[in-house]
Write a protein that binds this DNA or RNA. Structure first.
Length: 424
RNA sequence: GGAGGUUUGGCAGAGUUGGUCGAUUGCACCGGUCUUGAAAACCGGCGUACCGCAAGGUACCGGGGGUUCGAAUCCCUCAGCCUCCGCCA
């Protein structure tokens, strides 16, 4: 969430930035600032009351030690009024703090100055495209047909055993998954990201830390008996490693990566968007995460974008990069680049990666800070990106590297799969 | 799942018959003296957050709640860790 300090100091800038999301923050911010002023006033009163209580208690302590019991009793009588006062003030404080917190939780991150205003995906800005329109393939067999024909993925079996959106991968389909995961992890490793295998379930504190809770509660699978959530992305456990941690300024940037399955309820999705591998309830992804110095975080974002580019180049897939407009960005992000690969059968672009800088929005929830040269503590900037999400990559590989007799596995990937072709 | 123990500031480790304890001490760390430089020694500093222009105040000894004029110290509850038992990949 945004910091109170930033709301106080840069109210106008934040309101203007949030306008780019078509989020009118004027009223909410006004309200928060009012509550905050009240909170500060209340705290001053409370602190004062408590200070008086403490003074009397010390006095009583001194009198008791000297054995002046009656005098002590007399002083005790004075405390009851203060006690009632302070408990009332405490209650007021708590109410105000809760109100402020709840309100802050419902204000999205302020987009970076370079982010375009805009309502939806059509307003996103293409910042890079591999090749040009003439290099795009068309009229290919859709990946769901190939997956069935070559027995790579069994959607119906998944539907029987679990439900729609939980496919089985089999044979070369399974090996392709494993090969891609290893390929992505090795690339991340080479780029200096430390590999983790995190838990696949998280507690509510972690869900709050990265912003899934309370805003996206319904998107996660929830184990009610144990109050745990299935992770929607490795971002959540990886980023929460540094929840409530004071990092050393010299240790920044911290670079982590990890492969996990990701679980998403995807409530409300339907139609062609969910066909085949387009949208699944469980899918595999390698995630990269960085904790960066605020002054470096946009250079870091660029470096992460370059990393993902390298992966798509190696897979020889046609792709483009979009800088999302305000209206299409996630709640917690200050700037996001989406990567899309071409589906030669569906003849449309499929999102395979999202790389974001959250600035201090997550760090403020996580309380992940460093002590600067100035001796003060500052929030770090957090960033993450998919590198990469597998299903749509598989779809794109099957469709774009298709010829009359089968599928060619790109040379960079083949060693990880153990085969160079999938024959029809 | 059952029984017992335990949880203190970056780490180690005091403090549990409630009362100058936000907390002794050591290490680590930062600054200074000394030194050509370093080490050693000595001196000083050294938790976090909030309120306040400041002086200063308030809160925090795993989390939450309670008893009390007053709690790191007593009670309840939840969680983590350790030991033993049970069950099991």
């Amino acid at each position: 969430m945004l910091t109170l300090q930033s709301l106080r100091e840069e109210q106008d800038r934040i309101i203007a930035a949030l306008d780019k999301r078509h989020f009118d923050a004027r009223e909410a911010i006004q309200q928060v600032l009012e509550w905050d002023a009240e909170r500060r006033k209340t705290q001053a009163q409370l602190d004062d009351t408590l200070a008086q209580s403490n003074a009397l208690s010390r006095e009583i302590g001194g009198l008791m030690r000297e054995g002046k019991k009656e005098e002590a009793e007399a002083v005790k009588a004075q405390t009851s009024n203060l006690k009632a006062q302070s408990s009332e003030l405490k209650e007021q404080m708590q109410t105000l703090e809760t109100q402020i917190h709840d309100a802050l939780c419902h204000i999205p991150n302020a987009p970076h100055a370079d982010v375009a205003a805009g309502r939806n995906a059509e307003d996103n800005v293409e910042t890079f495209r591999s090749g040009d329109a003439s290099t795009l393939e068309h009229h290919k067999k859709p990946h769901w047909d190939i997956a069935e024909q070559c027995q790579l993925i069994d959607f119906e079996l998944g539907a029987k055993v679990t439900g729609a959106g939980f496919p089985f991968y089999r044979g070369k389909g399974a090996k392709l998954q494993r090969g891609l995961i290893r390929f992505f992890l090795e690339q991340a490793d080479a780029a200096g990201y430390e590999e983790f295998i995190p838990p696949h379930m998280i507690n509510p504190d972690s869900g709050f830390g990265t912003g899934q809770l309370p805003d996206k509660e319904g998107q996660m699978y929830h184990m009610q008996d144990d109050e745990l959530y299935m992770i929607p992305t490795a971002e959540v456990p990886l980023t929460n490693i540094y929840r409530d941690v004071m990092v050393k300024e010299g240790d920044l940037p911290i670079k982590l990566c990890g492969y996990t399955p990701c679980f998403r309820r995807e409530a409300g999705s339907y139609g062609k968007d969910v066909r085949g591998l387009n949208r699944l309830h469980q899918f595999d992804k390698v995630e990269i995460v960085q904790f960066a110095h605020p002054e470096e975080s946009y250079a870091t974002l660029d470096a992460m974008v370059e990393h993902v580019k390298g992966l798509l180049e190696a897979l020889e897939l046609p792709y483009r990069i979009l800088r999302l407009c305000g209206g299409d960005m996630g709640f917690t992000s200050a700037m996001t680049y989406d990567f899309e690969v071409w589906s030669a059968a569906q003849e449309r672009w499929l999102e395979v990666s999202s790389v974001s800088n959250f600035e201090t929005y997550q760090a403020n929830r996580l309380k992940c800070r460093y002590k600067g040269n100035d001796g003060k503590t500052h929030l770090v900037h957090t960033l993450n990106g998919s590198a990469l999400a597998l299903p749509r990559i598989v779809a794109a590989l099957l469709e774009n590297h298709q010829d009359d007799t089968g599928i060619r596995i790109p040379a960079a990937l083949a060693p990880y799969c153990g085969f160079e072709r999938i024959d029809f």
